[in-house]
Design a protein around this nucleic acid. Structure first.
Lengths: 344, 344
DNA sequence: TCCCGGAATGTTGACGTCAACATAGCAGCG
DNA sequence: CGCTGCTATGTTGACGTCAACATTCCGGGA
């Protein structure tokens, strides 16, 4: 059974010794040149550089990592990271890490049940990376992860917030803005298509929606349950479109809003004249639905950068500099899918 | 100049020696248990496993990499990988790599001008990863990359195809299907919103569009030039919407189709009654525009898996098994944005 | 002239792992 | 009862790098 064990010793590239021999110096001098640390006579340095160039030498990162105990690598643990929010965060994490001379190793958690996360965490265990960023670990709990102690970790919205340094978007403010906007337009009530029940951000958005209604003296209607996908928004939309009493829907993300709008469109209900729709996330395409979607924009770029900062601060033992929880503000973008209710 | 060099020796986790001592065996026996390779008596194995568990041991990957000359890591070089196609390909690459016990290190090329790619290639230089996957290296040329010789590489659609083993989507077939569909509906001609001029897939789609028109005896109209973004599709749409003679537009990707549709909508031109629109990629949201977008679906999942296979085949020196070029077929999805031209 | 001191360079060893080889233990058999 | 031929385990060394320490070299001052 020759599975993946068939890895044999690869032919090595030129080593520091080869360069040293060619340049007529010791390995240590080559090391000095390559790390740029110590004093080396300009003539010697030039000779070493020429030798490096000639051999196409580049330092072996495994050996460096072994020597230094540091990989220059941050692990990124995510589930379904091809989704817009995750992809944008990932991009920002990679950029920020690069700016700090770190690279990013991706680990995709295929089955988000506890086992998948644990398996993933184990693979990226504390010797493989210097730190770990976890984005949207929806089902995971600190126990189910069993991460090695001492590994610097930063998480974004998820159940893990509170257990590890975290970056969270201001779900509450964003949801309040949405509700103020819709109720301000005169809608008698607002329906909500929520994200999956095991998602923390989804729960927060739903709770804020509910609280805002209650504070306005309105009894919250039954919540519609989606799973972030446009399909689920479409499915909920099939029922919503049949109820002429519904004039405003707050969707927990943009994809579900797209699904809802298609369902409304198919049932001949006009957006925004008959029904107002609001999304969440501010994905690039949200500006190009017809009409463009009113939504709450998240600053994924900043979220990614803050996540990296939290991890690297721990690495460099600057606990004083890193607050436990960074809140990134959100912004309501009022575009074309919201209007006063019909007959008003 | 203390740049990022301030990394000190991290406190090490438990080593194989610690486990050996606790279990009362030699380090080699621990190694055998941890690699699962050799024969170890069940009682001994159990003792070692218990010791590993108690200490929270996990093998040091740097040491392993140094020993084996292999990192178990594939590098992924991409520009703007947060876009749908890139993100889906990335996901598939990560999954496929994981299935082969490899992890994936992401490298984001921020400025795609030659320098950015070269810088990126240098960072991932041949000792850091066992192989390299390059997706959509639009501006890069083999010379501008200067990749280390002997590093297994696989590329997807880009100018690099032909220089390295490649996986390409069947742009030609997909474009032909689009043109046959639209012309078959009776449209007198078809306009095209192309991708950026330096993109190979964009060029291929545009060339096929042009050839199909010519073969039908139609003189191709001026091409509209976009940059893949919905914004650019919207910008082209502002002009297209003003020309009542235009009844069908083939967009080189879905995002631009979304932008076009919003522009058409704003100008009161109905899709598909007045204008037919076709996209390319088959992103998840394309099914949830109103009406749902007719598009050419690419199998990003398969593309990612083939890329990994090409790299790993080279790693295991199976040149016979890996063709130089894998073509992944595309599929026209006829949905709601295409219809016969008005008055027919 | 000789010695001192600092700068440039060299030598040694250790990081953690695992392949190769070495040895110990033990069952089976004549 | 000793020998053969396994199987289970132990020992050694090397992968490439770099910090710590050691050495060499050289100019300048006494």
């Amino acid at each position: 059974m020759p599975t993946a064990t068939g890895r044999s010793r690869r032919k090595a590239g030129p080593s520091i010794e080869d360069v040293a021999r060619l340049a007529g110096v010791s390995a240590q001098t080559v090391s000095r040149v390559s790390t740029g640390a110590d004093a080396v006579r300009p003539a010697t340095r030039a000779r070493v550089l020429a030798a490096m160039d000639q051999l196409g030498y580049s330092p072996n990162r495994a050996a460096r990592a072994l020597r230094n105990g540091s990989f220059g690598t941050i692990g990124l643990l995510a589930h379904r990271f091809e989704r817009t929010g995750e992809a944008l965060t990932t991009k920002a994490v990679v950029e920020a890490a690069e700016a700090q001379d770190h690279s990013v190793t991706l680990l995709h958690v295929s089955n988000p049940e506890a086992d998948g996360w644990q398996h993933a965490a184990h693979r990226l265990s504390h010797q493989a990376v210097d730190g770990l960023v976890i984005i949207r670990a929806e089902q995971a709990t600190p126990d189910s992860l069993a991460l090695p102690a001492g590994l610097p970790i930063a998480v974004s919205d998820s159940r893990l917030v509170g257990y590890y340094p975290a970056v969270v978007a201001d779900q509450v403010q964003g949801s309040q803005d949405v509700m103020a906007h819709l109720l301000g337009l005169g809608h008698p009530t607002v329906h909500h298509i929520a994200g999956p029940a095991d998602s923390d951000p989804a729960a927060l958005r739903a709770a804020t929606w509910q609280r805002c209604l209650e504070e306005a003296g309105i009894r919250p209607p039954q919540v519609w349950r989606g799973d972030w996908s446009a399909e689920s928004g479409y499915a909920a939309g099939q029922r919503i479109a049949e109820d002429p009493a519904i004039t405003a829907v707050y969707c927990a993300n943009d994809e579900m809003a797209f699904g809802l709008m298609r369902a409304l469109h198919e049932h001949g209900r006009r957006v925004p004249q008959d029904v107002s729709v609001v999304g969440f996330d501010g994905i690039a395409l949200s500006e190009f639905s017809s009409p463009p979607l009113t939504t709450v924009k998240q600053d994924f770029h900043r979220i990614g950068h803050e996540l990296v900062r939290l991890v690297l601060d721990q690495l460099q033992s600057k606990p004083g500099l890193s607050r436990d929880r960074v809140v990134v503000s959100t912004e309501l973008l009022v575009r074309g899918t919201t209007a006063p209710p019909p007959g008003r």
